[in-house]
């Protein structure tokens, strides 16, 4: 693929995050594998979405990339150097977050200008002459006017707050933006504005954007590439058109089947033998999705499928492992 020629901005290899859930008096302590052996390349300038239902580990994955959560095992390279070898401030200059809830991501005791300037103040020290100008530029970028600089977060609407949060993330001109469900707390009408803003900014400033969402219609609209996660593992990875037009993994099919059609007369296809999301502390053996899968074979509940290339996409499913010849280098 053409992307293999591009340089990877972020290279994630076999990343795992395990939380231990307290020790029991008898028996072993239960462990939760939030992220379970994820390998992923994020190319410079691309818009990559990570989708999956709640509890599949996508937010934990984002936290690890932001350095808020230590990985249990695995390696992350940022521009070819291990993420762990960067200092806190160096990472901050390159990776910035946009959080889910704009009502909790801005300090209510600080003005918009002070909130936006935070990365600069922390990075350079207070009183730098250019802070005021940089704040102004960042606010211009996200479509807020001069007078908003003096406002306080509680005086702004949700959409305006999210713009402020984006301005804060962009003020240091990071190469990578990690958006953890940036629109799920917003009104539908405002969602579109924020999504367009993110897309335009990504294009104009050539920012690599990792977009984490459970909203498939948003993902379809936004991204070039999509990774589908299920219970800590990536089950399908490929260009958005391929994944959406011809989903391979049964879980991806189920997800796409659950997109609400614009036609109110149409009915959703309800999965027949859906046992619901499994207990993440005690995941089913083999393929995690096998108990919910209507095409499950005997091998599915025994052997964990690897992420293998099938034509344009990579998919972790035994239905396709027979046809594939080329193994993903890992």
């Amino acid at each position: 693929m053409e992307q293999n020629n591009q340089k990877a901005a972020l290279q994630v290899r076999d990343l795992s995050v395990t939380f231990s859930l307290g020790k029991k008096l008898f028996g072993p302590s239960s462990k939760l594998h939030a992220v379970n052996g994820v390998s992923l390349d994020v190319f410079r300038g691309e818009f990559l979405s990570i989708v999956g239902e709640s509890g599949c580990g996508k937010s934990t994955f984002a936290k690890v990339l932001l350095g808020l959560q230590k990985p249990t095992s695995g390696a992350i390279d940022l521009n070819g150097r291990p993420l762990a070898s960067y200092s806190r401030l160096e990472i901050a200059r390159q990776i910035q977050p946009v959080f889910q809830d704009p009502y909790s991501s801005l300090n209510p005791r600080k003005s918009v200008a002070a909130n936006v300037a935070l990365p600069l103040i922390v990075g350079k020290g207070e009183g730098s002459a250019d802070i005021r100008g940089s704040v102004q530029k960042a606010l211009d970028l996200v479509g807020l006017s001069r007078k908003h600089a003096g406002a306080y977060p509680n005086q702004l609407s949700g959409g305006q707050r999210q713009r402020v949060a984006i301005a804060r993330a962009l003020i240091t001109r990071p190469g990578i933006l990690i958006c953890d469900e940036p629109t799920s707390a917003l009104d539908v009408s405002v969602q579109a504005q924020i999504l367009n803003l993110l897309q335009n900014l990504g294009r104009e400033l050539n920012i690599t954007c990792i977009f984490i969402s459970h909203d498939l219609s948003v993902v379809k609209h936004m991204s070039k590439r999509v990774a589908v996660m299920y219970l800590g593992r990536i089950v399908e990875l490929g260009a958005a058109e391929d994944v959406f037009n011809r989903p391979r993994h049964p879980y991806t099919k189920m997800l796409i089947g659950s997109i609400l059609p614009a036609d109110p007369g149409k009915k959703l296809s309800i999965p027949t033998n859906d046992g619901g999301f499994p207990d993440p502390t005690n995941p089913p053996p083999g393929c995690h999705f096998s108990p919910r899968c209507d095409q499950a074979m005997e091998v599915c509940s025994k052997v964990k499928p690897d992420l293998l290339r099938d034509e344009a996409v990579e998919v972790a499913c035994h239905l396709y492992s027979g046809t594939s010849t080329q193994r993903l280098a890992s």
Partner: peptide, 27 residues
């Protein structure tokens, strides 16, 4: 501390002293 602005301050590399005195204390 459960608010995302604390995580945001950690993400930009703010020190613990900064977070305690500038983010937590005023709130």
């Amino acid at each position: 501390c459960a608010n995302e602005y604390i995580a945001a301050a950690e993400c930009v590399g703010a020190s613990r002293t900064w977070i305690i005195f500038r983010e937590i204390l005023p709130n």
